[in-house]
Design a protein around this nucleic acid. Sequence first.
DNA 1: ATAGGTTCCGTACCATGGTACGGAGTCAAG
DNA 2: CTTGACTCCGTACCATGGTACGGAACCTAT
Lengths: 127, 127
Amino acid sequence: MDMTIGKFAAAGNVGVETIRFYQRKGLLKTPKRLEGGRRYGSEDVRRLLFIKQAQSAGFALEEIKELLDLDAGDDRERARAAAKRRLASLDERIAELNRARAALERLIGECASGKKGPCPILASFGL
Amino acid sequence: MDMTIGKFAAAGNVGVETIRFYQRKGLLKTPKRLEGGRRYGSEDVRRLLFIKQAQSAGFALEEIKELLDLDAGDDRERARAAAKRRLASLDERIAELNRARAALERLIGECASGKKGPCPILASFGL
DNA sequence: ATAGGTTCCGTACCATGGTACGGAGTCAAG
DNA sequence: CTTGACTCCGTACCATGGTACGGAACCTAT
């Protein structure tokens, strides 16, 4: 349950340097030095995995920090409000990506068949 | 129909420096200097708008360059293949964002009501 | 023709999210 | 008790996508 930074990083599938980077940024805490260096536990791993998940969900490290702080605190209203803001911008992002998806599908269709000439990539994007 | 770099940048709602940056990166061409400097036309604006759209659709500048090159060329099969690759990664991205969306919604629900204590942000993400 | 606004160009700087490097200390096994 | 692996720490460097700066040239209106 207790591990050195190397194992910890491996547990989150990131590099040791990344852990230190997150510590500098305040996303992870730097445990006290004790008998033979700093030790990390499963709470830390949980936090690290959250960072990775949130990140792949499109959150910036600053935003993830905000979420982590809210999780630690107990102001439900603030947390709820922040989550709603994130949800709104996430929805916007998803809509954008779906528009691009439609354009790409259109492109693949128009680019198909034996027609000669260039693929109308820009045209597929409505331009 | 002909404009200076300032108008051109304004037409795409970007800064003059951004135009020059795109030129350095090969995303936009640098027109020949003629009578009183370089001039830009509606084809350039179209290209610029495409860059912006593709960008907001999550494409990196390098990828956009690839798309622009394909649009210029006439290898339909290559263009089609590239579009399919992009479509696949776009779908993955969209799925990821939807997972995050679900987590946020769960969070907002669990964070609601008058319950005391901290919001289970990490828990909402399944951690 | 002179002032003010643009343009041109190189170079430097910024934020984000890391990655690498080098030296010193520590720990465990042979 | 020495070797090798790992840790700690500061600092430097990297890519991406720009943004800013400063001097020189040039364009336009008065």
